[in-house]
Amino acid sequence: MAKASAVINFPNPARIHDASRHCVCFWGYDNAREIVFQVDDVVLVKLNPNKDSDESSLLAAFDHNREKILEIARTVYTGGPQNKYTIS
């Protein structure tokens, strides 16, 4: 019998820039389990190469590319005990 694929949802639009980790963090949910996702600053700069790399520019880059980033997050999410994923 085939195993059902993991399903992740992103009902919470919140995201924060974590300067110490050089990433933007956001959260997904697999049923009641919260999963942390981090998108490296480098990825966001590559998505918007003509923008600055300060906090507000990185958050704007995340917002502008949100659907693309969420699609990548859905692809990397495998379910199971892991509760943090990095998109780099």
Rank of each mutant, 00 (worst) to 15 (best):
A4K: 12
V24S: 03
E55T: 15
G79F: 12
M1I: 07
Q38T: 10
R15Y: 13
C23H: 02
T86W: 08
I8W: 00
P81L: 02
F62E: 04
N31V: 06
A60K: 15
S20V: 12
L70P: 06
N9V: 09
E34D: 03
Y29G: 01
V76W: 06
N65E: 09
I35T: 01
V24I: 03
V76K: 07
H22L: 14
N65H: 11
L44Q: 02
Q82L: 04
R74Y: 03
A60Y: 15
T78Q: 14
N48F: 03
A32T: 10
K3Y: 11
A2P: 11
F62Q: 06
N48D: 14
A60V: 15
G79M: 12
E71G: 07
A2W: 06
Y29N: 03
N31A: 13
F37W: 04
D18A: 13
D52E: 12
A14Q: 15
G79W: 09
Q38K: 10
D63P: 11
E71H: 08
V42H: 13
D54M: 07
H17A: 09
I87Q: 05
S53T: 15
Y29Q: 04
P13T: 06
D40L: 04
N50P: 03
L59M: 11
L47W: 01
V76G: 04
H64W: 15
E71S: 12
D18T: 10
F10P: 01
A73M: 02
D40I: 01
D52G: 15
Q82A: 03
A32G: 05
A19T: 13
F10Y: 02
F26A: 06
D63S: 15
K3I: 10
P81G: 01
P11L: 11
L44H: 00
L44T: 01
D54V: 11
N50E: 10
